[in-house]
Simulated scan of single mutants.
Amino acid sequence: MFTPPYPIVTPRLVLRPFTEADLDDLHAFHSLPEVTRYLYWDARTREETKAALDRKIACAGLGADGDALSVAAALSGGGPVIGDLTLFLRSREHRQGEIGFVFNPACQGRGLATEAAREILRIGFEGLGLHRIHGNCDARNTSSARLMERLGMRLEARLVENEFFAGAWSDELIYGMLAREWRASPAASPVPGA
């Protein structure tokens, strides 16, 4: 079972496992319709957020195909949890992973999601030794697409009308990055001040 060396400290964030104390912070953005608009779940009630948090607490390490590592991104200095990141182990044999992220919109536009997601890629490539990490998003979710582009991930595919989502057919974008691309990217360098 692989578990990252927590806490992971960046210039503005602390990445760590979720705890029961994170319920209010997580519910603050999991309950917003604008956050869940392109996700596979609707805005959550407090009870639904609690159930999701319990699942996240249980996702503390990666060992087998299908496992998910849930990571909380909190503002440094004891600030609130503003991000919910996931690294999925899709295939140990083929060393494939998938990244996912959800952030509080009150903290958008400051590069915090990029700062946190970069560390999830680092966990996958440097910690777990993955060969490829991909991320998917609805084509209308331009914020997620731009985030993956800022991370240095390349657009690999646009699946046209791939899913019937929220009452309409939608396109899906697939971004990817290989370990050699990660090693050659500026993102692979240690974060200054961390």
Rank of each mutant, 00 (worst) to 15 (best):
E20Y: 04
K50D: 08
K50I: 01
L26R: 01
L53K: 04
R55C: 09
P33N: 10
R44S: 11
R16V: 06
R44N: 03
L23H: 02
R44E: 06
A21S: 09
P17K: 04
Y40F: 10
D54F: 03
D42F: 14
K50Y: 10
A58E: 11
A52P: 08
A28C: 05
R37T: 11
R16Q: 09
R55H: 10
H27F: 01
R37D: 00
L32D: 00
D25Q: 05
E20F: 07
S31H: 01
A21W: 01
P17A: 02
A43L: 00
E48F: 15
D25P: 07
E34S: 13
A43S: 04
H30V: 04
A52R: 12
D42G: 10
K50E: 15
S31T: 03
T45I: 10
T19D: 06
D54E: 12
F18D: 02
H30M: 12
S31A: 13
A43T: 10
D42R: 13
T19S: 12
Y40A: 15
D22H: 12
R37C: 08
R37P: 00
D54S: 14
D25K: 06
T36A: 12
T49W: 00
S31G: 08
L23T: 03
F18V: 09
L32Y: 04
A21M: 07
T45R: 05
E47N: 13
K50V: 10
D22V: 05
A58N: 04
P33I: 01
D24P: 00
P33S: 00
L23R: 01
A21L: 00
F29G: 07
D24F: 04
E47H: 14
L32T: 00
D22N: 06
A52F: 14
D42E: 15
T19N: 08
L23I: 06
L32E: 06
E48S: 10
R16K: 11
A51P: 12
T45P: 06
H27T: 04
E34D: 14
A21C: 04
D25S: 07
I57W: 07
L53H: 06
L23C: 07
T45C: 01
L32M: 11
W41R: 15
L53P: 07
D54Q: 12
A28M: 08
H30Y: 15
L53C: 06
A51Q: 13
R37I: 09
R46Y: 08
H30F: 13
E47K: 13
V35D: 09
T45L: 00
E20L: 11
T19H: 11
P17I: 07
E48C: 14
T49M: 00
T36M: 03
Y38T: 13
S31R: 10
V35Q: 10
L26F: 04
E47T: 12
T49S: 06
K56A: 15
D54I: 11
D24H: 06
L53Q: 06
D42T: 15
R46W: 01
